[in-house]
Design a protein around this nucleic acid. Structure first.
Lengths: 227, 227
DNA sequence: ACGGTATAAATTATCAGACAATCGCACTGA
DNA sequence: TCAGTGCGATTGTCTGATAATTTATACCGT
């Protein structure tokens, strides 16, 4: 007794559309065939094709304009956040995994960040500016935004763009219990941020790693196993 | 002259659906009214409502089953990651960046894998089985598949599901380079795989890290800067 | 009376065809 | 030359119908 799930046409069409784009090396802005033609090519009705394109449009992968046609787009994580941010049902079963994943990504990026810091002094300066912003803020909501921005910048400084994207995605799933934290919980984070970038500035990756790990583990205690 | 954008019905429906869910405090698994009823309630045709629900279904926000109806779904990271292949960071990222990202992820997972190996002997055994499969294969295409599978299993053994999803995403972009490799290039990889899991088996994370780094860097030389 | 099976109802999945709205562009007229 | 107009192409939306699937119910045999 195999639990077979009926394969829905639009899921197939979604895959085929994505393959069509990648196989043709199409870039954002490139035109796609019109709906009728694509439907014929895939051997489905226009409606089924539409359901697929409309779904992909929510991600931003394709765009459609009346009177113009379909064009290739790019995933815009802000848009994804917008749709997911209202968190009806984010899977929270593995907060531990999410945090560990963050640790892996952020710590793994540190050596690359240190290398870039050695080459470009502006990297350190801009990060310092972020921390200063932090010190001047009293509003909790603003702090949260700045914290996300700091960790994002820290990753961005590594020069590894994919890691930034992955981190953005993870942040979506963290958003919820961020709100449940108290102001006092965030206090120690400021100086931790400073110590991390200072260690990197001194090319002491090991120290930065320790600081960052402690910094994230600190949050782990506050979030883990609530009930 | 404001750039007015025609408000598309399905976008409105998407918003109203999300509000419907949040306003009712609906949880994953909760039933939604059927399509006809919802369409009537929103004052749109059933088709427009469908386009909205199908789009949300790609996110996992709602689920629909034939003969059952609409239910609130759970959004999981893996599902979103699956469609992230069109993110600019991955589209425009250089091979170098993608490889470095792989290094960060795979090496970062090793400590977790070692820990799980210590707890469960089956982890090591199943990985060994993979390597054995490798030795018995002569077909190049099969080797490529097995290599991907091995690295996937290695990550999976860490217990960090998000990393597996990220890795799957990265593999899409490596696919093209793999095909250009020669059979001889893959030979040393087999024993490297064995050494990695043996080191982990002995709880020697540092050694495993070195082996894995060399293993991936080895490929870097063959792929890097072709033109 | 009970268990299993066949039928019916409810619901989504998919399709076909039509018309409206919108955009781009060529064509025309001054 | 240039502004205006109309036409074709394309997506947006609707109506209606049929197929596929699951759940619940009624029926039948023992």
């Amino acid at each position: 007794m195999t639990a077979i799930q009926r394969v829905k046409i639009r899921d197939v069409v979604v895959d085929r559309l994505k393959k069509y784009i990648t196989a043709g090396c199409l870039k954002p802005g490139d035109r796609l065939p019109n709906e009728t033609e694509l439907a014929e090519q895939f051997g489905v009705s226009r409606l089924s094709l539409r359901e697929a394109t409309k779904a992909l449009e929510l991600f931003g992968i394709v765009e459609s304009k009346t009177g113009v046609g379909l064009t290739v787009g790019t995933v815009c994580l802000e848009r994804v956040t917008e749709h997911l941010g209202f968190h009806p049902a984010l899977q929270n079963g593995s907060q531990q995994q999410l945090l560990d994943t963050r640790v892996v990504i952020e710590i793994g990026a540190l050596p690359y960040t240190a290398k870039r810091m050695a080459d470009d002094p502006k990297v350190y300066e801009s990060l310092c500016k972020r921390v200063d912003e932090f010190r001047q803020t009293r509003d909790l909501q603003k702090w949260i935004e700045l914290d996300i921005a700091f960790h994002r910048d820290l990753l961005h400084a590594s020069g590894l763009a994919p890691l930034v994207a992955f981190n953005d995605l993870l942040q979506i799933f963290f958003q919820r219990f961020r709100d449940s934290l108290k102001k006092a919980d965030w206090m120690p984070g400021i100086e931790a941020h400073q110590r991390i970038i200072d260690a990197l500035h001194n090319q002491d990756v090991a120290l930065a790693t320790n600081e960052l790990r402690q910094h994230i583990e600190y949050h782990k205690e506050r979030m883990g196993a609530p009930e």
